[in-house]
Amino acid sequence: MTVIAAASLLAWVWLLLGQGGFWRTDTRLPPRETPPHWPSVAIVVPARDEAEVLGLSLPSLLAQDYPGRAEIFLVDDGSTDGTATVARDLHTRFGGLPLTVTSPGEPPSGWTGKLWAVKHGIALARERTDADFLLLTDADIAHRPDSLRELAAAAESANLDMVSLMARLRVETGWERLIVPAFVYFFAQLYPFRWINRPRSRTAAAAGGCVLLRSSAATAADVPDSIRQSVIDDVALARAVRRSGGRIWLGLADRVDSVRPYPDLAELWRMVSRSAYAQLRHNPAVLAGTVLGLALIYLVPPVAAVGGAVAGAWPLCALGAAAWLVMAGTYLPMLRYYGQPLLLAPTLPYTAALYLLMTVDSAVQHYRGRGAAWKGRTYARPDASAQE
Rank of each mutant, 00 (worst) to 15 (best):
W38A: 00
L58I: 04
V41A: 11
P36D: 05
D49M: 12
D81Q: 03
D76F: 03
L62D: 11
G96F: 08
E33P: 03
R88H: 11
D65H: 10
L58T: 04
V45S: 01
V53E: 03
L62W: 05
H37W: 01
P35H: 02
G96I: 11
L56M: 14
G82I: 03
P39V: 11
L58Q: 05
V41S: 08
D81K: 02
R69W: 07
E71W: 10
T80F: 05
R93P: 00
I72A: 02
D77L: 01
P35G: 06
E71L: 03
T80N: 09
E71V: 08
L54E: 14
S79Y: 10
S79H: 07
S60Y: 09
F73A: 09
S57I: 07
V75M: 01
Y66T: 09
L56C: 09
I43R: 02
A70G: 04
D65G: 07
E50W: 09
P30A: 08
R69Q: 13
E71I: 08
P36R: 01
R88I: 13
R28N: 02
P31W: 08
P67R: 01
G55V: 08
T92C: 05
V45F: 00
L54H: 15
R32H: 07
E33Y: 02
G78C: 09
D89G: 09
R48L: 11
T92R: 13
A42S: 07
P46A: 10
P35V: 02
V86T: 14
P36C: 00
D65E: 14
F73H: 13
I43M: 07
L54A: 12
T80R: 12
E71M: 09
A47G: 07
D76W: 10
R93C: 03
S57A: 13
A47R: 06
G96L: 13
H91Q: 15
E50K: 10
S60N: 14
P59K: 05
D49V: 14
F94T: 02
I72W: 03
R32W: 01
G82E: 07
T83Y: 13
E50L: 04
P39Y: 08
T85C: 03
V44P: 05
T83Q: 09
S79F: 08
E50M: 10
A70H: 07
A51N: 06
G68K: 00
H37P: 00
G78Q: 13
A84L: 11
T34M: 01
R28S: 01
L58K: 07
S57E: 04
